[in-house]
């Protein structure tokens, strides 16, 4: 039954470009998809380890910049007389670099997270994103500063004689993002259901208890931040090679906020939460736009919805729907335990 629903859902997602016929809406779907991947990565930190990182846009932006720079090539003076020249690399290599570099940044942030918690961790992550933005803005030689990195090549996969795909145009990019989203979902699902995932949730619920039963708190926190950062970095790289321009505003706090709204509204600590929240808050601006509502009003609606969600659905949409779904499942009289109970419930 569940498997059938999953297959139907996937088939629906794969069929969208075949019947949508409106390239602008497809463009909106692609951007939404990329932000859903970023929101899933944030959920790993916010939902499963309970660390509110408000610097997720930093990983997203670093991924975008690293992949763009590697695929465009660059020249930079690391010291006044030490010129480093990097020739343009294939885009897939750039994206791999993005994942590695953001993973390393995630490792550093994970170490910091162990030292400072709560409000202080939030402020450290915001500061981190802001510092990275200012570096991107001012290190003109490398990043072109406010002039933006332009003409970023699209992703192309070339295996001589076998494969030659360039992801140009909306349909190709839609499938690319969809495949990445499914991969990310799978990786996160595996991680949170593994021993490591259960350890993360345990230390979110009660860190002292988790430590006392021998869970290595630092190790799992760092693992979660590394994974989260790397996935956000991959999303950023996808974004850069789709819109083909990156400027320092990619680090703005508002992008992090968008991801946070998606996660919190959808339901933090559930696998489906960021997807549901992402679809709603990714498509909502277009819906409001088609009602000819000023962009400012859209954002006011955004802000008010965010407050309402915290007040009315503090756990998010997916957990609020769960009793209803479980009731249905009960009627289906399935013998084996359902596979998709969120890990946080499986623990309790």
């Amino acid at each position: 039954m569940r498997r059938l629903a999953t297959i139907a859902g996937l088939a629906f997602l794969f069929s969208i470009p075949l019947w949508l016929g409106n390239f602008y809406l497809l463009h909106v779907c692609i951007i939404t998809g990329i932000f859903i991947i970023a929101a899933m990565s944030l959920n790993l930190l916010l939902g499963y380890t309970g660390q509110l990182s408000l610097g997720q846009a930093a990983f997203f932006g670093i991924g975008a910049y690293v992949s763009s720079l590697a695929s465009l090539g660059f020249e930079v003076h690391l010291l006044p007389d030490w010129l480093v020249t990097v020739d343009p690399k294939p885009v897939w290599f750039g994206m791999a670099c993005a994942v590695v570099v953001t993973g390393l940044c995630g490792w550093a942030i994970g170490r910091i997270a162990f030292k400072v918690r709560g409000a202080y961790f939030v402020i450290v992550t915001i500061s981190f994103a802001e510092v990275v933005r200012l570096v991107a803005l001012n290190w003109d030689e490398l990043t072109q500063g406010p002039m933006a990195l332009n003409n970023i090549p699209p992703l192309s996969l070339v295996i001589p004689g076998l494969l030659d795909i360039t992801f140009i145009g909306k349909v190709a990019n839609y499938y690319l993002v969809l495949v990445f989203a499914i991969l990310s979902y799978g990786i996160i699902a595996r991680l949170v259901r593994s021993r490591a995932g259960r350890a993360m949730i345990a230390l979110k619920e009660n860190e002292a208890l988790a430590a006392s039963v021998g869970i290595d708190v630092t190790k799992y926190l760092v693992l979660a931040t590394v994974m989260s950062a790397a996935i956000a970095g991959a999303a950023g790289a996808l974004y850069a090679h789709y819109v083909r321009i990156v400027d320092p505003n990619v680090f703005l706090f508002i992008y992090t906020v968008t991801m946070v709204i998606m996660v919190v509204a959808g339901g933090k600590g559930t696998l489906a939460g960021p997807v549901v929240g992402g679809v709603i808050f990714g498509l909502l601006p277009e819906g409001l736009r088609s009602l000819a509502i000023a962009p400012e009003v859209q954002w006011i609606v955004y802000g008010i919805l965010m407050i309402l969600v915290v007040y009315l659905l503090p756990q998010g949409i997916v957990p609020a729907l769960r009793p209803f779904l479980q009731h249905r499942r009960h009627l289906d009289a399935q013998k084996q335990p359902p596979a998709d109970i969120p890990a946080s419930e499986a623990m309790s």
Partner: peptide, 16 residues
């Protein structure tokens, strides 16, 4: 996969 993707890419331009 390859050819279908290619044709999809080509269709993008025509449809547009």
């Amino acid at each position: 996969m390859q050819s279908s993707l290619k044709s999809v890419i080509a269709a993008t331009g025509i449809l547009l």
